[in-house]
Design a protein around this nucleic acid. Structure first.
Length: 661
RNA sequence: GCCCGAGUAGCUCAGUCGGCAGAGCAGCUGUCUUGUAAACAGCCGGUCGCAGGUUCGAUUCCUGUCUCGGGCUCCA
C-alpha cells in the first residue's frame, strides 16, 4: 500500500498512509506530542491538525511551548469569548478578535448601544468555561465570497471584512484588505470555523483542534474601540483577556501584573511623597515635592556633568516664541494640533514651545560659523509643552509639560557619522549609569512616499546610524520606512526590572531644519555649506525617565539617587544630641540624611523609615555615642550591624554613591 | 478628542432601597524614654468632585461639567 513521506524539522522522514493528517502524524510520533499538539506548520504555513498532508511536505508540530502555539491558543480563546458574548447578549454582533501580547481581545457591538460592564466579565467567563468543558471541535470550512456574505448576513462587520478583502479596488483598499486578511482567508474563498450548531466565526485560522484545549485564561477588562480605528465609525465594546499554556503561566502573569501595580509610579509618587498632580493645574501637569525634586536634582546634575565631559555646551532658551518662528520651523504646519494655542499680545502671537530645536538653531545662526567651529553640540534641559489628548495623559509617562534633555549637534556632513557613532555609545553609557542594562533599538529608514533630502544624504545618515548601532553591539530592529520625513532615526527602549519596555532615547538626523533656517558654515574651500543637524534626547524627558526609574526600582532608589540616603534614629531622647552630630557629620559630605527624634518607639520609627524604602536606617544609642559608632540597618540586608564606626559608614555611603548603588 | 468605568476625611475604603456620614491608617494633644518593621489614651478631621434639576427633603435619582483610571489614537 502506497503512503506518503514527509520531513520533520530535524530532517528525519516519516511515512504515513494517504490522507493522514498533521494530527495523525503527531499521534504517530508519540502520545505526549499528540496531547500537546495545537496546530502544525506545513511548508512554512500554519494549518489545523485536521489538515491532510501530502507527499514531500516539511511538517512541524506546534505546541503551546512556542510563541506560534501560544498565539493560536490565544486566537482560539478569542473565538470562545465571541461565542460566549453572542450567546449571552442576543442580537449582539462581533467585529474582530485577534491575539495580542499576553492574550487577546474581541470587539462587539451590542444591540441598542448596550455596553458590557466589568461586572459582566464574570458571567461571560463562566459561559466560556462551559464552552471549554463541552470540548467543541473547531471545524474549518471554506465557502465562496457570495456564500460567505450570506452566511454572515446578520453580521455587518463580518460582511464588511469580506467585502473589503474580496473587492479591494484601490491601493488604500488593498492596504485595509491586507490588514483584514488576517481575520479571514484568501484566494477568493472565505474560511470560517464552526464549533457548534450555534456558533461560527470567520477566520483564516488555524485553530486548536477543540475548545477543550483551552482553559488557562482570564478576562481582564472592557474598553471602547472604534471599528477600524476610525473615530467616525461606530464605537465597539472591546473585551480584553489573557491566555496561557498552563495554569502556572497564567498565575505568574497575574502575579507580574500585581507586581507592576505595586510599582506604579503614580502610587509610589504619593506613598513616597515625590510628586503629585493637583487637579487645579489641569491634566498632565505635576508638581515636584521636595523628595522628588531631590532625585530630579541628582539626575539633572549627573546629566549636566556627563554633557560637560562630552563636549556639549549648556544653553538656555525661553518657553514661548512668536508664531513666525513656528511657521519657519514648520511646526505650525505639521505639529499644530499638539501645540498650545497662541497668546495674542503686542500685535504678535506667542506659542509655548513644543520643542527646543528652533531656539538652538537660532543660537547657531547668531554668528557665521566656520567648519573649524564644528561640530557644535548644544545641550539644554528644555521644558516644552504639548497639547496631548486628555485621554492620553498618564502620570509622568505622558504629560503636557515636560523637560527634555535635549541636544542638537551641528556638524559637517563629513563629521556626522563619527558624531552619530559616539552618540549611541554616550546614550548607552548614561542609561547604564542609571541601572538599565537591557536595551532594544529600532532603526527607522526613509519613508517611501514623501521625504526631503537627497538620496546620498539619506544613505549616509542611515548607514551612520546603522554603523553606530553595530559598533555599540546593540541588537536592533529595522523599521523600514519608519523615519521622519526629515531624516532617519534610532529609538532606544530600555527594559526595566520586571521586563517591561520603555522608549526613552531618540537620535534623529535632520536635513530639514538646516534648510528651513538656511543654516550655513564657511568651509575650508571658503564656500558656504549646509551643516547636518542631529537631534538627540537621551532620557527623553526627565519626567518620563523619573517615572521609569521609580517603576524600575519599585521606589527603592539606590543610595546615589535616594531622596533621603539615611535616616538617623536616636534610641531615646538622651541620644538626640549625638544623632544631630551624626547628621552634621554626614551632611558635611553632602549626604542627604535626616534625624527622627525619639518621640515614638524605635520600632515604629524603623518601620516608618522602611516603608519609605530608604537605603539606610541608622540607630544610635549609648554605646554609639560613647564610641562614635552607628547601628546600620541596610535596606535588603539581613538584620542590623551594631557598632559600625561613623567614619566607616561615611566611606561606605560614599562608595555606594560613587558606584551608583 | 472618543468609548467604558470611577470620584465619600490627607491616604485606603465602607455606607446611605432619598431622612443627623463611618472605619483603619495618617495628623494633633497627653502619657510613655524606648536598641532594630506598628506603645497607650483622647482629639481634630467631610458643602459625599462641581453646577443645575426633580423632591417636603438629594451624598444617594436625573442632566451637565471637571478630574482620575482602563482602552482607542498619538507619543518623549
Amino acid at each position: 500500500m502506497a503512503g506518503i513521506s514527509i520531513t520533520l524539522p530535524d530532517g528525519s522522514r516519516r511515512s504515513l498512509p494517504h490522507g493522514a493528517t498533521a494530527g495523525d502524524l503527531a499521534a504517530q510520533i508519540g502520545p505526549g506530542l499528540s496531547k500537546a499538539a495545537l496546530v502544525a506548520e506545513v511548508d512554512g504555513e500554519e494549518v489545523d491538525l485536521s489538515a491532510p498532508l501530502s507527499e514531500g511536505q516539511q511538517v512541524s508540530i506546534i505546541t503551546a511551548d512556542s510563541d506560534a502555539g501560544l498565539t493560536v491558543l490565544r486566537h482560539s480563546t478569542a473565538h470562545v469569548l465571541a461565542q460566549a458574548v453572542l450567546d449571552l447578549y442576543p442580537g449582539a454582533t462581533y467585529a474582530v478578535g485577534p491575539p495580542i501580547q499576553d492574550g487577546f481581545y474581541y470587539d462587539f457591538d451590542l444591540p441598542d448601544g448596550a455596553t458590557i460592564s466589568e461586572d459582566a466579565l464574570e458571567a461571560i467567563e463562566a459561559r466560556m468555561r462551559e464552552i471549554v468543558a463541552a470540548d467543541q471541535p473547531f471545524e474549518r470550512h471554506e465557502v465562496s465570497v457570495a456564500d460567505g456574505l450570506e452566511l454572515f448576513a446578520d453580521h455587518p462587520y463580518k460582511r464588511e471584512i469580506i467585502e473589503t478583502v474580496a473587492m479591494a479596488a484601490t491601493p488604500e483598499d488593498q492596504q485595509a484588505a491586507d490588514e483584514m486578511a488576517a481575520e479571514v482567508a484568501g484566494d477568493g474563498q472565505i474560511s470560517y470555523y464552526r464549533n457548534s450548531d450555534a456558533f461560527i466565526d470567520m477566520c483564516r485560522g488555524p485553530h486548536v483542534p477543540s475548545t477543550g484545549r483551552l482553559g488557562h485564561f482570564k478576562l481582564m477588562s472592557v474598553a471602547g474601540a472604534y471599528w477600524r480605528h476610525d473615530a467616525g465609525r461606530p464605537s465597539l465594546q472591546r473585551v480584553y483577556g489573557t491566555a496561557w499554556a498552563t495554569g502556572k503561566d497564567l498565575a505568574s502573569h497575574l502575579h507580574r501584573l500585581a507586581e507592576a501595580e505595586k510599582r506604579d509610579h503614580r502610587r509610589l509618587a504619593r506613598e513616597l511623597d515625590l510628586l503629585s498632580w493637583p487637579a487645579e493645574l489641569g491634566p498632565g501637569l505635576a508638581v515636584w515635592h521636595p523628595k522628588g525634586a531631590a532625585v530630579r536634582r541628582v539626575i539633572e546634575d549627573y546629566s549636566r556633568r556627563r554633557h560637560d565631559e562630552g563636549g556639549y555646551e549648556l544653553v538656555f532658551t525661553p518657553h514661548i516664541a512668536r508664531s513666525e518662528l513656528w511657521e519657519t520651523s514648520g511646526h505650525l504646519d505639521f505639529y499644530r494640533e499638539s501645540m498650545y494655542p497662541p497668546m495674542e499680545l503686542d500685535g504678535g502671537a506667542y506659542h509655548p514651545k513644543p520643542m527646543n530645536c528652533p531656539f538652538h538653531v537660532l543660537i547657531y545662526k547668531s554668528s557665521l560659523r566656520s567648519y573649524r567651529d564644528l561640530p557644535i553640540r548644544m545641550f539644554e534641559l528644555g521644558t516644552v509643552y504639548r497639547y496631548e489628548l486628555s485621554g492620553a495623559v498618564h502620570g509622568l509617562m505622558r504629560s503636557r509639560g515636560f523637560t527634555q534633555d535635549d541636544s542638537h549637534i551641528f556638524a559637517t556632513p563629513e563629521q556626522a557619522p563619527a558624531e552619530i557613532a559616539s552618540l549611541v555609545a554616550f546614550v548607552l553609557s548614561v542609561l547604564r549609569a542609571f541601572g538599565f542594562d537591557s536595551f532594544d533599538a529600532r532603526l527607522a529608514t526613509r519613508p517611501p512616499d514623501k521625504s526631503i533630502g537627497g538620496d546620498a544624504e539619506w544613505e549616509m545618515a542611515t548607514e551612520a546610524l546603522q554603523g553606530a548601532l553595530e559598533a555599540a553591539g546593540l541588537e536592533y530592529e529595522l523599521d523600514e520606512g519608519g523615519g521622519a520625513f526629515y531624516g532617519p532615526k534610532i529609538d532606544v527602549d530600555v527594559r526595566d526590572a520586571i521586563g517591561r519596555s520603555w522608549q526613552l532615547s531618540t537620535i534623529q538626523v535632520d536635513f530639514q531644519l538646516p534648510e528651513r533656517f538656511d543654516l550655513e558654515y564657511a568651509g575650508a574651500d571658503g564656500g558656504r555649506h549646509r551643516p547636518v543637524m542631529i537631534h538627540r534626547a537621551l532620557m527623553g524627558s526627565i519626567e518620563r525617565f523619573f517615572g521609569v526609574l521609580i517603576e524600575h526600582y519599585g521606589g527603592a532608589f539606590p543610595a546615589w539617587l535616594a531622596p533621603v540616603q539615611a535616616v538617623i534614629l536616636p534610641v531615646a531622647a538622651s541620644h538626640c544630641h549625638y544623632a544631630a552630630e551624626v547628621e552634621a557629620r554626614l551632611s558635611r559630605d553632602g549626604f542627604r540624611v535626616q534625624v527622627v527624634d525619639a518621640q515614638e518607639p524605635l520600632g515604629r520609627r524603623i518601620r516608618a523609615a522602611k516603608l519609605q524604602k530608604l537605603p539606610y536606617v541608622l540607630v544610635v544609642g549609648d554605646d554609639d555615642a560613647a564610641h562614635r559608632t552607628v547601628g546600620v540597618n541596610a535596606r535588603g540586608g539581613d538584620g542590623d550591624e551594631r557598632g559600625v564606626p561613623l567614619e566607616d559608614f561615611a566611606l561606605r555611603l560614599a562608595r555606594d554613591v560613587d558606584d551608583h548603588r
